[in-house]
Simulated scan of single mutants.
Amino acid sequence: MATVLVINAGSSSIKYQLLDPDSGEVRAKGLVERIGEDSGRVEHTVGADTTTAEDPIGDHAAGLRTVLGLFESVGPDLLEAGLTAVGHRVVQGGPHITEAVIINDEILETIDSVSTLAPLHNPANLAGIKVASELLPDLPQVAVCDTAFFSDLPAAAATYALDRQVATEHGIRRYGFHGTSHEYVSGRAAALLDDQQAKLVVLHLGNGASASAVRAGRPVETSMGLTPVEGLVMGTRTGDIDPAVIFHLHRVTGMGVDELEDLFNKQSGMKGLTGHNDMREVLQLVEDGDEHAAAGLEVYLHRIRKYIGAYAAVLGGLDALVFTAGVGENNPLIRARTVADLQFLGLEVDAQRNEEESSEERIISPEGAGAAVLVIPTNEELAIARQAAALVS
């Protein structure tokens, strides 16, 4: 058996899974959180058993040392598990990293050089890579970038109408994010439909949210842009907004760049509209008659429907709409409300199929619908593991 350890290092956390890339079996998984704070927490799960520990975790190196210690003391033993590679999620690969790559000094420099495009993510990703390289020096380290799937977007989709010289000099273009998820889900959707030429709109709806238009396995549009702020309304991010709002707020309030970035990234979206970024809490407020929550939900749904219509036009038709990620996979009300006014595109859901709780890939549209509606659970860790395994083999 061969396995891959997948690491997703955030600014104050490390998520990890040990997977068999062939079968998809998760041998172990866990989370290190509150890195650098007064009290840290580690969860390490093997099968049905979870080991927890709460102690200060000074930095990513200490966190990953704790994880490797748990593999030794609780299991599974990494040597016996046939560990062949470590796969790292990297948010921004820039224009140069367009596929999974084995990490060397040049790749580290490239990831670091585009950190200005993802200042909340790439530095943490780099920290995870450097620590894993130090603690597991005999294993190939592989970077899989969120932006890679969208690296060959058509120029008309990737290009902003900004002064060309400025855009070229500073690498300003539509990069797209959640690419590992969109690639995995669109591939599974094509397999479920038995149509490798399918025209798909994929909705990755979680706390972060994005849409993509995929034709014959390749993306032709995506909602996130230079950064993950653009596009759909998200848990705490604005999504599409007139960029002149920044100029206006600066002039009338004196807000600086850091304050505006925090406002757009962490205080807006559903949290800004309703007070909550968890869709379950928002829907409970709507049920309780909260007017702000009801209005916020309409903004959220309106933006999604607008993107579906636009992407159907870009694709020249639509074979299927695909829901994935936390909200998309688990919230039948959001799915039903999303397609309620889109019958003209052939989209509708079967009420019984839509309400059934399942963790399986499935079609929730009625027989004979003009376009299929699918729910495909995303699995970014498995996608990263498979890309890493294929590369090192």
Rank of each mutant, 00 (worst) to 15 (best):
I102F: 00
G40Y: 00
F71T: 08
N104D: 15
V91A: 01
I103Q: 13
S73V: 13
N8S: 10
D77T: 02
I35D: 03
G69E: 12
G10L: 08
G87L: 12
T98W: 05
G82Y: 07
T98Y: 07
R34D: 06
G82I: 12
I14W: 01
I57F: 00
S11E: 03
G69I: 00
G82F: 14
E72D: 15
T84E: 14
D20I: 04
E43Y: 08
G30M: 06
T84A: 15
A28C: 03
I103A: 08
V101T: 11
A28W: 04
E99H: 13
T45E: 12
L83F: 06
S13V: 05
N104P: 03
R65A: 12
G82T: 06
K15H: 09
G40K: 06
T51P: 04
E37N: 09
K15F: 10
A9C: 14
V90W: 12
P76E: 11
V86C: 04
M1D: 10
T50G: 13
D49W: 07
V42D: 02
L83P: 01
G87Y: 09
T84N: 07
R89L: 13
L18K: 01
P95D: 14
V101P: 06
L83Q: 02
E80N: 09
A48R: 13
I7M: 13
L5N: 08
K15A: 11
P21T: 13
M1C: 00
I57T: 00
L19K: 02
